[in-house]
Design a protein around this nucleic acid. Structure first.
Lengths: 144, 144
DNA sequence: ATATATTAAGATCTTTTTATCCTTTATTAT
DNA sequence: ATAATAAAGGATAAAAAGATCTTAATATAT
């Protein structure tokens, strides 16, 4: 569904969100530990999210990653996914055809459409805070 | 969503189905040409489908691939997908956790569940013949 | 029986994805 | 100012996926 990088991106974002809500900044090491991801690879991913201004980063002592409150209110899963995996999850043809479209559909085009729409809606509706909340309450997990 | 191999597998199966309905056997070359896939790679994939007895193959002159009528009546998309990609599309956690479950869910577990179910249902309901029919009528395409 | 067409199978190569390492840059605390 | 800390960036490596090549096995037609 998502690339590994995107999975880490989502997990990291949720973790950062939890911490940001209580005003804490978290280091790369902290994040990689919390979501059980390879540190250097995670760094690359966070770099990308930071470039896209989906998360904030501060260098130096007591630096780290965070998401400012304002952003956090609006940050959707779709934004994270888009930053890392692009739009292939929405646009790509289920059978890999380049020019698959309503006008020239592949055999599964219409069958997939509904599912894809639903996925898109879900990603666009779901906020990272919302997911962070469940994690904060111990209802959901980011490891194993 | 699916691996490239799985995309080719589905496309090939649909093409073989169309031909099989009019009693024709099709060669690898023919298939690869029709679905615009790399020939040798496609051979591997068809080999796998053949091993799993989802399609039939005959060696030698006037040999090739086909799907016998009986099989074709029941052959579902889910079977093709399972033969090539296994069950990751159903079972795998959206965030890549190994032990994600109802009891110990990742933050998106419940959100994904509905979508995954729908996908599963669709794949299990959809027959290859059904898709072949649209292709036979020129309503759908396997190229570009 | 032989030649030929065609799939099967194994080995190998290429590309992409995933992951690591090392150096540089920015920030903070002293 | 200096040292320490943490992310940024670039180069490289390992693993997985995608694709190709070569040889073997098998069936058919003559």
């Amino acid at each position: 569904m998502f690339s590994k990088a995107c999975e880490y991106a989502i997990r990291a974002s949720i973790y950062i969100a939890v911490k940001s809500e209580s005003g804490q900044r978290v280091s790369l090491k902290d994040i990689a530990g919390a979501i059980d991801s390879p540190e250097a690879f995670t760094a690359k991913i966070l770099q990308q999210l930071s470039k896209d201004q989906l998360i904030d980063s501060v260098k130096g002592p007591s630096g780290g990653f965070s998401i400012e409150k304002k952003k956090l209110q609006h940050l959707r899963l779709s934004q994270i996914v888009y930053a890392i995996d692009g739009d292939r999850i929405y646009k790509g043809c289920g059978l890999g055809l380049k020019d698959c479209s309503e006008r020239k559909p592949c055999p599964v085009h219409h069958k997939f459409k509904a599912i894809r729409e639903e996925l898109k809606n879900m990603l666009e509706k779901t906020t990272v805070t919302e997911l962070a909340s469940g994690l904060g309450k111990g209802l959901t997990f980011l490891q194993r």
